[in-house]
Design a protein around this nucleic acid. Structure first.
Lengths: 256, 256
DNA sequence: ACTACGCCTTAACGTTACGTCAATCTCAAG
DNA sequence: CTTGAGATTGACGTAACGTTAAGGCGTAGT
């Protein structure tokens, strides 16, 4: 039973290029070469190819396969054990990746819902603060203090008491975050308190049931990745505030 | 805050080659080039690099990252979802690989233990059969039938009754396998019966507690991969017998 | 015999994300 | 002025083939 390159490639389900390549790298040489220069494969080559493809499916590199099949004392056991370790490591890496992507996705979702209800609340608040800085005096003069506070509450969609709570929580969080910045330690008590307060703060803005550790950690990551978010924190405290909060939240969500 | 290529590379923890490459592929261009041809990076580039590295950690390709960061309506959500799918697929593939490697390892282990107790039993049996064919008559004449049977038993380390059981089981298995070969269907009742009998047969030879589905499936795979094993089955029935048994065992171990 | 068509050959570039020289130029310090 | 660190471009190497390109067999139909 002799085969041309095409016949063998059809038989084994690989391309002819693959077989030529295997020839080239001395992995699978044809039995002989006919007068016209054609490669001729015999049954031994068929068997060998099967072996090769078997190990290839196990994601061994061709170089490894060559070693395995060539070395007389072919140490399959060790090679398999070693290979197994590598695969496990790869898998764990992949799982980490997937977790990160899920976090980012969750944060995205959170952010989307926020923009759905009229853009990220932090921006709203920022705008409100800006508005007040710029026009507050004027408005207050015209309509009185109560009018503008009421407007602010409505803009954020919060009740009077809730609005006051978020203000207080955010203030306290910033204080703790400032302390954490001085300690430069995201694991410090201050930093962890800031993370916990951030969580509390989020509960006022995120739709019910939206909160999850992943979304929280993901959002914190977004604070660092998206310059618009970063500025919100960095301008209020100092450069690196967003990073500090992210690191604190990462630790916080991992521990709780 | 301007940086030379080395400074930025130290800051970000990547090589200068990487930065030159990113420049080359239009992923991250320096802010400007100074009169001596040096690359000069500014804060915007630092931010961009951070973004790039963030997505790179998520295992996005550089091409994808470029699209993500360049397109104005950069659709992170869809990209992430898509990416997530790919990662999951990769992970499942890896898990399949790991299972296969584990099966192969388990089979190896089984085979090793067998060789530890004097080489794979099937070979022993083969040798015994050969011995009997070649010298059986002579021995029988000299020592009588009982002597040789006793020798066989001892060789395999089995008691008299166990020895007879294995003989019966193997015979029945071969009959079912033969039927399966004619049907050419590893899912057929005959094939599945053969697989079950093969399992029973193994129990006599494998050390207690050694049996597992993985080891069983792995051993069956070895029957196909190792020509010595293949021949034991193929010569007793027909070409393809080892494959049929493997396929049957694969189905069997998956279903039970 | 001629031609067409399928299969064969080698050669060589493309892919990914850089690592690693090599040859040469610039800069700051001693 | 020398020296050594750091800068530049250029080019090869990596893994496992896919994909042309240009040209030589083989055989079947006209």
């Amino acid at each position: 039973m002799n085969y041309t390159i095409k016949q063998l490639s059809d038989l084994a389900g690989v391309s002819t290029r693959t077989l030529r390549y295997y020839d080239q790298i001395d992995l699978l040489k044809p039995e002989r070469i006919n007068p016209s220069g054609y490669r001729v494969y015999g049954p031994k080559q068929v068997d060998l190819l099967q072996q090769i493809l078997f190990y290839r499916e196990l994601a061994f590199s061709l170089k490894e396969i060559r070693s395995l099949l060539k070395s007389p004392n072919f140490n399959l056991r060790d090679a398999l054990t070693d290979h197994h370790k590598k695969l496990i490591a790869k898998k764990q890496h992949l799982e980490q990746l997937i977790r990160t992507v899920e976090q980012t996705l969750a944060a995205q979702k959170g952010a989307m819902q926020m923009t759905d209800q009229e853009k990220f609340e932090a921006f709203k608040k920022e705008k409100l603060a800006e508005n007040e800085r710029q026009y507050g005096k004027e408005i207050r003069e015209n309509y009185g203090k109560k009018t503008i506070e009421k407007a602010n509450k409505q803009f954020a969609g919060l009740s009077q008491t809730d609005y006051e709570k978020t203000q207080a929580i955010e203030k306290e969080m910033f204080e703790n975050l400032r302390a954490a910045m001085q300690l430069n330690d995201p694991a410090s008590t201050a930093a962890q308190k800031a993370a916990a307060l951030h969580r509390q703060w989020l509960f006022f803005f995120w739709p019910e049931g939206t909160y999850s550790k992943e979304a929280h950690a993901g959002l914190a990551q977004m604070y660092v990745d998206d310059p618009r978010f970063t500025s919100y924190y960095d301008t209020r405290l100092a450069n690196g505030a967003a990073k500090m909060l992210r690191d604190a939240v990462n630790i916080y969500t991992q521990q709780n």
